[in-house]
Design a protein around this nucleic acid. Structure first.
Lengths: 116, 116
DNA sequence: AAATCATTTCGTATGTTTGCGAAATAAAGA
DNA sequence: TCTTTATTTCGCAAACATACGAAATGATTT
């Protein structure tokens, strides 16, 4: 009776990208790298963000792990920038989800408040 | 010397939306609600997803908390659908981030592999 | 009033994330 | 070679996320 669905690779991939973007510091880094259309150093970031070096390093690691950024060792620095290939993949996945033209349905009344 | 930046509300909001989307089950639910352009019941979902009722309920709660869905009590069911207003907000935030035309930079060589 | 149905909340276990400072690494300059 | 600089890894603590089954809720049907 229960036709259990198996969650597709696209869905899992999208969740993984979303997870990488689920922290304000990481959104900030991505925005900065995308906006600059350029690379930047860990040191630049630690100066402007209210977190410690090791914490920033972990956030960068997360973004690398998700594939959204990449780093090139350029002693004595490491230069980070967007991983364009995966960035486009993420873009496509989010665009696809948000492209559905959602309309207000019958359940307009928010009977269940947010946060409860 | 350290001009610490304070993370903007938009960045925090975007991270919150991303967090809500950071689990495959929740992506699946959002996709389904957006695609159907319709509402659905918790019972419909529990039949097709490989998770228990209480776990599903928590995922729905997360999505409600983030504001991406809303539920209308329609005894004996609860009908869920996309919260259009916030959906559009999320869409706009993601579009803005991804709209930056990123190009390959000098750090094309992935010296740091993903996952390490 | 009792049984049923859909869903949520509670309690609990386990695992993951976030943060820090200290130590490690790795390259460059004195 | 010793020191400095940039970054990461380690070890730890606190907080949060995910999952489950059992109990609670709240409305409907018998």
């Amino acid at each position: 009776m229960n036709e259990k669905v198996q969650l597709s690779d696209d869905i899992k991939q999208m969740a993984a990208y979303a997870k990488a973007m689920s922290h304000p510091v990481r959104v900030y880094i991505l925005q900065k790298l995308a906006k600059m259309d350029a690379c930047c150093y860990s040191g630049d970031l630690v100066d402007e963000l209210p977190i410690g070096r090791s914490t920033l390093s972990q956030h960068l690691k997360e973004l690398k792990y998700a594939g959204l950024i990449q780093g090139e060792i350029q002693p004595p620095y490491i230069k980070y920038c967007i991983n364009v290939e995966n960035w486009e993949k993420a873009k496509a996945l989010f665009e696809l989800l948000f492209s559905e033209k959602v309309q207000n349905q019958s359940c307009k009344i928010k009977t269940l408040e947010n946060g409860n």
